[in-house]
């Protein structure tokens, strides 16, 4: 990926196996994905760059555990190396909604005391007739868990980018206030090319640091 980016966020998609994680991911990364069309090629196509504020580009490195959910230790190792994720359920599948708390607890236990930032995603919003979880209910849960809530559909491309954007912003904001920071041996956030113009106003260029 040649695009210049300032930070890389490692993102996981979580949720029961049938909620449509791969479809959402596919939709989000579509351009590159359909070009390659072959997951076995060693290409970094689970990635996309978003501009979170003018001049600050974030590379989202996306992890999909699709097909491997049952290898418990593997998915858990993803948690620790992620800065945030989309916590997904299927609005037509009550059980997947009920699993949300479990997923969150599991991740939090696993990364404690660090924090992983999530956005709650109600997926398959196009299937209005089969809906099993109301928006109000989901919003209530999101509020209780202190998460943002977004409804998406990969099928008609509703809010897909928005969900990832929202998440990216949440993470970026947490970084700004120092709740999240770069760390060696941790892949959650990585520093890319950074001309330092973002966080450092010009008048502050002169500093007392001169060693």
């Amino acid at each position: 990926m040649d695009t210049i980016w300032q930070y890389q966020f490692r993102i996981i998609l979580l949720g029961d196996s049938t909620v449509g994680k791969s479809s959402l991911l596919k939709r989000f990364t579509d351009g590159s994905f359909s070009e390659v069309q072959d997951p076995t090629v060693g290409v970094d196509f689970y990635a996309r760059v978003l501009e979170v504020e003018p001049g600050c580009r974030i590379k989202l490195q996306l992890w999909d555990t699709a097909g491997q959910e049952r290898f418990r230790s593997i998915t858990r190792s993803y948690y620790r190396n992620s800065v945030g994720g989309l916590l997904m359920f299927d609005v037509t599948n009550r059980k997947s909604f009920e699993s949300v708390r479990e997923w969150l607890t599991e991740v939090n236990n696993h990364v404690y005391p660090s924090k992983t930032i999530f956005v709650l995603v109600g997926h398959k919003s196009d299937l209005t007739d089969d809906r099993d979880v109301s928006r109000e209910e989901a919003e209530k849960l999101a509020e209780a868990l202190d998460l943002n809530y977004i409804e998406t559909s990969a099928k008609n491309n509703t809010n897909v980018d928005l969900a990832f954007m929202k998440l990216t912003e949440c993470i970026y904001d947490s970084m700004k206030v120092g709740e999240i920071s770069l760390e060696d041996g941790w892949d959650g956030v990585k520093r890319g090319f950074n001309p330092q113009v973002l966080e450092q106003p010009k008048e502050e260029k002169q500093s007392d640091c001169n060693c």
């Binding site: 890389q8 590379k59 090319f193 502050e204 260029k205 500093s207 007392d208 640091c209 060693c211």
Partner: peptide, 22 residues
């Protein structure tokens, strides 16, 4: 002081922070 602690001048220019993955 309000100036940032780490200024561009205060650091040894080691690796260019441009490599996406170390």
């Amino acid at each position: 002081q309000n100036s940032p602690t780490v200024s561009s001048g205060g650091l040894a220019p080691w690796d260019i922070p441009g490599s996406p993955t170390p």
